[in-house]
Every structure is written in C-alpha cells, then in structure tokens.
C-alpha cells in the first residue's frame, strides 16, 4: 500500500500493514528530519508533492518491488506539509519469508523513491533562511539568512 499524508506517521500502524504469519522478516525504514546538515542547523521542514504523480510513481515502485523480490507485503508512507525535527518524513515497511529480500527491497524502495518521486523538501534554517532543496542545484533562498549582529 502507498499513502501521502499530512498527519504524523505512526510507525506501529505502518508495521501492522505488512505483518503476516507468512513473513519471517519485517524491515522498517524511517527517514527522519535531521537537525544539522553540514554544520547548518535546521528548525523545521516543509514537504511538497505533486500528489497525482507522486501516488502514481509510488504505486509503480511498489509493484516493481513485488516483481523483483518475493515479498509478502509492502507499505510506503510519505508525509507532506510542515514537520518538526526528529519526525518521520517517510516510512517504508517490507515483509518477506526471508530477511535478505526484505532488506534488499526496502533499500531499493527508499533509494529509488529519492530519485524519481516528485516530492520536495524545504529547509527552514536556524539562520533565518528558507530554501528548497534540489540536489545538484545551488539554493535560491526564499528568505535570506538574518544579518549577523555587529
């Protein structure tokens, strides 16, 4: 199953969606909002998505994972909107009969999600700047950093 949600991600609920007596392994990946990036402090983040396409891409990834590995169940949940530090922005749970398949599929799902699913992160930095994150592109601050006191 896949889901985009504005509500906090409940990891136990995500796990419950893949639990099965057919499974001998359950792998859960949580992507969480980090306070420091290369020494710069984050206060909070915003995630935006192109919902129609993001849901379509997530469903394609989910289907491809089931084709490539013998999985019992998968659950992919991505949060959008405003997130505080330490909150989960994404949860991927995979269950399979044997652990190798769950680990490999879970890693492939998060790696591929980060490459192709149209979701974007905006950093609200402690220095006052707000910037969209676009890998490979220098940021264009919405707001510049606060001027340092003399």
């Amino acid at each position: 199953m896949i889901e985009l949600t504005e509500r906090p991600i409940d990891s136990q609920e995500v796990l419950s969606r893949v639990s099965s007596t057919q499974a001998g392994a359950v792998v859960l990946f949580l992507g969480t909002t980090r306070e420091f990036t290369r020494g710069r402090q984050t206060l909070s983040l915003n995630y935006e998505c192109y919902a129609e396409m993001a849901e379509k891409k997530l469903a394609e990834l989910d289907a491809t994972a089931h084709e490539r590995w013998p999985l019992v169940a998968t659950a992919i949940v991505h949060r959008v909107g405003h997130l505080g530090l330490g909150e989960a922005s994404v949860a991927i749970a995979v269950s399979s009969a044997h652990r190798e398949d769950a680990f490999e599929a879970g890693k492939w799902l998060i790696d591929t999600l980060k490459e192709v699913v149209p979701i974007w992160k905006q950093e609200n930095w402690a220095d006052g700047a707000t910037e969209w994150v676009h890998p490979g592109i220098e940021p264009s601050p919405t707001k510049p950093p606060n001027e340092k006191a003399e």
Binding site: G31, Y50, A54, K56, S89, V90, H134, P135
Partner: peptide, 29 residues
C-alpha cells in the same frame, strides 16, 4: 518535464489538453 504524470524526454510531443508539469530535481524521502 512530466506529461499526464509521466516523465517524458525532449523528443516527445506535447498533446493538446494534457497535464504538464515542470519537475525540479526531487528531494523527498
């Protein structure tokens, strides 16, 4: 560029009445 929620290459045509989106490098996860 995405047309009707699918990535397309530069040689693809742009059909009338399609849903078109500009997709900057993504940063989800």
């Amino acid at each position: 560029i995405a047309i009707n929620a699918e990535y397309v290459n530069n040689k693809a045509s742009v059909p009338a009445d399609s849903e078109i989106a500009l997709i900057p490098p993504v940063s989800g996860g």
